[in-house]
């Protein structure tokens, strides 16, 4: 296992370098950051050249990249064009997004698994069909539609929640955004759990468990669920990374100043230090989440052994 982890960590290096370099190139392709800095005014050539020298922009692209990477590993993510250090932006944005993700994962995990178990155990009955139709509807509605509709209904029309999340973004205000963010994944978790349960109820080892005279509860919880939830848990694990990066729409709708919001603003304003910095961290989150999921898989299923 130890060797496997080391190998996986080493494999991360080229993936990390490759993806961050791609982002670097793409942001560079957006246009001249110095021109963006001056906005509508034409910059004074001497000042522009000075800034370029200060920002290392007079070097070739690959040198800019290595310089940037070296700075990152010293904990220096640079300064946004607004004058704020990127690290400071991250410090305020990441906690919000992490909190939002936690809410979303709990929602999709708990509700999705429960719905999946219910419909999987009652295959072909009306509950099952109802859940199937519901999940199809949820999957086919884009987040910006469901988000605005739910915000309008709960926040404006019925006034149950605040339509806009306050700056501190406590957990109770994040429930509705969390649900919106989780909706599509929730539908997938439900479908995945249902299929897995339906498949495993007919498995030989479940019949063995019944033949052993185990109570129904024990057959379901210990034998059926343990096996059925392996693919579900791994899906939720990989989804954590996707939820964090994919919160852009949800964060815009509910005015949460998290990672998605900062990224959106950064791209809009051609604020390259912000964009590259945030995406770099996102890449790391994705890679680590995937590694953890693979390790978790081995813990859940003893047939999987990494060497």
């Amino acid at each position: 296992m130890g060797r496997y982890v080391i190998r996986r960590l080493l494999q991360m290096i080229p993936v990390f370098v490759g993806s961050t370099f791609l982002i670097f190139v793409m942001v560079y392709a957006l246009g001249d950051p110095v021109a963006a800095l001056f906005g509508d005014r034409a910059p004074d050539p001497a000042t522009a050249a000075q800034i370029r020298r200060d920002l290392y922009l007079d070097h070739p692209l690959w040198q800019q990249y290595t310089h940037y990477m070296a700075q990152i590993f010293q904990g220096n993510f640079g300064t946004a064009f607004t004058g704020q250090p990127v690290l400071q932006l991250m410090g305020s944005a990441w906690p919000l997004t992490i909190r939002l993700t936690i809410v979303a994962v709990i929602v999709e995990g708990v509700i999705g698994i429960i719905l999946g178990i219910i419909s999987g155990m009652r295959r072909g009955r009306s509950v099952d069909t109802g859940v199937l139709v519901l999940t199809l509807i949820v999957v086919s509605i884009p987040t910006f539609v469901s988000g605005y509709v739910l915000q309008f209904l709960f926040g404006v029309k019925w006034g149950v929640v605040n339509p806009s999340v306050s700056a501190a973004a406590p957990f109770n205000e994040l429930i509705l955004p969390g649900v919106v963010l989780a909706l599509v994944s929730l539908a997938y978790v439900t479908r995945l759990t249902r299929t897995s349960i339906a498949e495993n109820t007919r498995a030989d080892y479940v019949r063995t468990a019944v033949a052993k005279g185990l109570p129904r509860r024990r057959v379901i919880l210990r034998h059926l669920l343990r096996n059925s939830l392996i693919p579900v848990v791994t899906f939720i694990g990989t989804d954590v990374g996707a939820l964090m990066g994919g919160a852009i729409v949800t964060e815009r709708i509910f005015n949460i100043h998290g990672v998605g919001y900062q990224l959106y603003q950064g791209i809009l304003r051609q604020n390259s230090p912000t964009v590259v910095g945030f995406v770099t961290i996102l890449v790391i989150v994705f890679l680590v989440a995937n590694l953890l999921v693979d390790l978790l898989y081995a813990v859940l299923d003893p047939r999987i052994r990494y060497a």
Binding site: D204, Y205, R207, T208, R222, H223, R226, N227, D301, R303
Partner: peptide
Amino acid sequence: MIFQDALSALNPVL
């Protein structure tokens, strides 16, 4: 009861 195929009749994760 003793089943035919012990590999599938035993729970793989316990």
